[in-house]
């Protein structure tokens, strides 16, 4: 289903959910939960947005049933740790590549995905200062290295 324009800002989190459907369904579930919560704040009144959000809710309810034997789904405190660990793993991989001077698409994507998953952590409560800083750094690095590779410059 096409994403209505007012909900555009959740498109990257929904894409991350799709990419993790098989690899890590817990990540996919919480990305969609974040998208749902954010989408409801953005626009849940216009018919096209409401229709989209109802479908997303259907999907979340189905996923919750399918994953009912996972503690990361039934206990949000476990889910919080799962998403945080996953985000930091992505961040550390990209940071290690960066410090080793290995600049490539995969590490850019890892920095960006880490920043999206740090957004997702907000479904569990306020982000820690450390996570806010990691998110800012990861997003900036992803943009900076992407632009360098595009223009043929070597990132510093």
């Amino acid at each position: 289903m096409a994403l209505p324009a007012p909900l555009r800002s959740i498109q990257h989190h929904l894409r991350t959910a799709n990419e993790h459907e098989k690899r890590d369904p817990v990540v996919a579930y919480y990305c969609r939960l974040y998208a749902m919560q954010t989408g409801m704040k953005l626009d849940s009144k216009t018919p096209e947005c409401r229709k989209f959000l109802v479908k997303l809710m259907d999907q979340l309810e189905t996923m919750k049933k399918e994953l009912s034997d996972s503690d990361s789904i039934t206990q949000e405190v476990v889910g919080n740790a799962h998403i945080e660990n996953y985000a930091l793993k992505m961040f550390l991989y990209a940071d290690n590549e960066d410090r080793g001077g290995r600049f490539h698409k995969n590490m850019i994507k890892s920095f960006y995905t880490a920043s999206l998953l740090l957004d997702v952590l907000s479904v569990f409560g306020e982000l820690s200062e450390e996570n806010i800083q990691h998110r800012k750094y990861a997003r900036w690095k992803a943009t900076y290295i992407h632009n360098c590779l595009k223009s043929g410059e070597t990132p510093q």
């Binding site: 939960l33 919560q37 409801m40 849940s44 009144k45 409401r50 809710m57 309810e61 039934t74 949000e76």
Partner: peptide
């Protein structure tokens, strides 16, 4: 008509909020 449609929208919105609360109820 506009108050009726806004009332329908608000009811559907509440329903969505309720579903979200139920979804997040810890088992």
């Amino acid at each position: 008509t506009s108050s009726l449609s806004s009332s329908v929208a608000s009811t559907e919105q509440d329903e969505l909020s309720q579903r979200l609360s139920r979804l997040r109820d810890q088992v």
